[in-house]
Write a protein that binds this DNA or RNA. Sequence first.
DNA 1: TAGATTGTTAATCGATTAACAATC
DNA 2: TAGATTGTTAATCGATTAACAATC
Lengths: 208, 208
Amino acid sequence: MTKFGTNILQRLPLYLRTLQQLQSEGKAYASGAQLAATLGFESIVVRKDLARTGVRGTPRLGFPIDRLIPAIERLIGADDETVAVLGGVGKLGSALLSYPGFRKQGILIAAGFDAAPERCNLILSGTPIFPVHTLTETVSRLNAKLGILTVPADQAQRVAEQMVAGGIRAIWNFTPAQLDLPEEILVQREDLAVSLAVLLHRIKERNA
Amino acid sequence: MTKFGTNILQRLPLYLRTLQQLQSEGKAYASGAQLAATLGFESIVVRKDLARTGVRGTPRLGFPIDRLIPAIERLIGADDETVAVLGGVGKLGSALLSYPGFRKQGILIAAGFDAAPERCNLILSGTPIFPVHTLTETVSRLNAKLGILTVPADQAQRVAEQMVAGGIRAIWNFTPAQLDLPEEILVQREDLAVSLAVLLHRIKERNA
DNA sequence: TAGATTGTTAATCGATTAACAATC
DNA sequence: TAGATTGTTAATCGATTAACAATC
C-alpha cells in the first residue's frame, strides 16, 4: 500500500468534501487553483497532492471530478467498510453517533455500550445501545475491528481492555487517559488539549 | 515568540499531562526515557523536545518536573487566559462545556449560545447560555477573543460572522462547514473526517 | 569507577516551495 | 496563437534519526 505523510492525508478528506460539493453543483472538472482558493491552501500544494492520486488533469480544464473522488476515497481508505463499536454513550458519544460523516468514510458503528441502565437497550441515531458488561461478547459476535472510546477517563483502560478481548484491532481514544495495551493494538488519540495547544500557539503567532 | 512546528506542539501537551501526573505522585524528576516509554515515543524525540523548553536536565536524574511544567505551559500558551464563547449547545457543545481541560489551558468559556429557547437562560457546567440573537453584543461586552463553533453545519457561516462582528479573532470550527471569513480571522478546523482518514490509513498500513 | 542519562553535532529523510517546461 | 493550468525537476527547509561526547 502507498505510504503517506500525515500532512497530505489530512488534506485529502478536505479535497474530497469540496469535490463532492462541486459535483453536486453539476461541475465535471475542478482545477487545483480552485480547490486551493476554497480551502485556503497554496495551489502548488494542491497540485502535488492531486498528482499523488494518479489522476491526470488536463491543462486549462482541471481534473475530472468523477475520477478524482473515487481515487481519493481509495487513498484515505473510505472504500471499504470497517465495523466499529462505541464505548460510552454520554454527550460526546451520542454526538459521534449522530455524525453522518462516518458512514461516508466506510465506518459502521454497529453497537454502542454504556454502564448506565437508562441509556441501554435503546436505539440512538440508528445504533443499538447495550449494557457495557456485554461488550466483549458483542464485539466478538459483530467481528468489530475498531473501538471508539468516549467513556469517562477513569474507565478508559478497563473498557479498552474489554474491547481488545473481543477482537478489536484499533482504538480511537477520545479520552485523555493514557492507554496501556498490547503492541499490536493501534491507538489513535483524539485529544482536545492537543488541538487547543496548536490553536493557542497559532493565535499567539498571529498576534506577535 | 518562538516558532514551533505543529509536530512538537502536539507532543508538548502530552508531556505536560504526564508530568502533572508524575508530580501528583510525588516525583520530583522525570527522565526523557521515562516520558518516551509512557507516551510511546522514541526517547531521542523527547530529548530534543525537552531541550527546546530551555530546562536543563541532569544526567542520571532527568529533568526537574517543577521547572518543566511551567516552561511547557508557557510554550503552549497555557499561561494566560483567553476568553471564549461557544456557539451551539447541542450534544457536542455541551460535551465541550463539561471538559475540564480547557480551564487548565487558560481557556475560559464565558458564555454559550443556542437558537433553541429551551436551552437558553440556564447554566450548563458553570457557563450561562444565552439566545443566539444576543451573540454579537455579548461577545463584544465580554471582550471574547475565541469562538468555538458547534452549531449545525448550515448555520456555521452565519454564526461565525456574528462572532466576528462581536470582535472574535479566532474560530475553532467543529463543523464540517467551509467558513469564508476575513483574512485576519484565524480559523482552525477540528474535523473528524480528517482524523478518521489518518486513523484508517494507519490501520491499513499496519495490516499491510 | 561504571553506567545511565543528557547534550550536541552531523546525517538522513521527507515535505514544501520555486522555477519552468509541457499541454490543451 | 495566447494564456491558463498541469506536470516535472531541482532547491530549500525543517523534522527526525543517528552517533557519540559530556556529565553526574
